Amino acid sequence: MQLDDLVKIVGIAASVGALVGGLISWLWKYVQQSDRITVRFGTAHYEETPAYGMHVISRRDHKMEITDFGFVLMNGKLVSAPVVWEQVFDDGNPYDGVSGSKILTERNARFEATMQLYNMEVVGAYAETSTQNHSTLGFSSRHALHWWDRIRIRLKQYIKPEFN
């Protein structure tokens, strides 16, 4: 192996390394700018209430707004809390509990809502931010919901969301 061959190999390796590094840097920047939230069924703080609770936790450092949130029924349909409150309460002021702001300003910022739903089998909660195309779902650990039902509901909401 000659010195010229070694210089060519090192040059090619450096070029490939720079290309991969640039790609990883661009991808990391894109991933950090996307909205990421965690949705949990149940309230963050234990409260003795007959209402169903849900909370949303921000997983990014930038500001994001929750545009829709609510509950998932056993048949896979979504119940949007803002839509129900708008239809039921004329003044737009819900009588169910809301804690925190719908604008999450920092990592681990929390939004919480409770809602009384009668004669509905609620198995989870969902939320969506202004830049997400699909809802983020969270299921209850208290209900005996099989893993295939969770996959079925997630696929149903990913392909064509249905609201109750």
Rank of each mutant, 00 (worst) to 15 (best):
L117A: 06
D68N: 09
E48H: 03
I159F: 13
K8Y: 05
L6H: 02
N75V: 04
I12H: 04
H146F: 07
D149G: 01
Y52H: 15
I103V: 15
K160R: 14
V31I: 15
V123H: 01
R40K: 06
E48V: 08
T38M: 09
K63S: 04
G92S: 11
S34K: 14
M1K: 11
W28T: 14
T67Y: 04
G138A: 03
Q32A: 10
L78Y: 00
Y30R: 14
N133Q: 15
G138F: 01
I57R: 11
A51T: 09
K29Q: 13
V84W: 08
W147V: 15
A18K: 05
K77C: 11
H45V: 06
E128P: 01
Q132E: 01
S130V: 06
V56A: 10
V123F: 06
L145A: 06
A113H: 01
T43S: 03
N75T: 05
S80T: 07
T114D: 04
K102P: 04
G100A: 07
M74H: 12
L104C: 02
A13W: 05
S58V: 04
A125F: 00
T49F: 02
M115R: 06
V56C: 08
K102V: 14
K102G: 04
M1C: 05
Y158R: 13
R59H: 09
L104S: 03
T43L: 05
G21D: 12
I153L: 05
E65H: 13
S140R: 06
V7Y: 07
A44P: 00
F139N: 03
L117I: 05
F69G: 03
N119M: 11
T43R: 05
F139G: 04
T131C: 01
F163G: 06
E106T: 08
R59F: 02
R142D: 11
V31Y: 15
E65V: 13
S135V: 12
Q2P: 08
E47R: 08
N133C: 06
W28F: 12
T49Y: 09
H134Q: 12
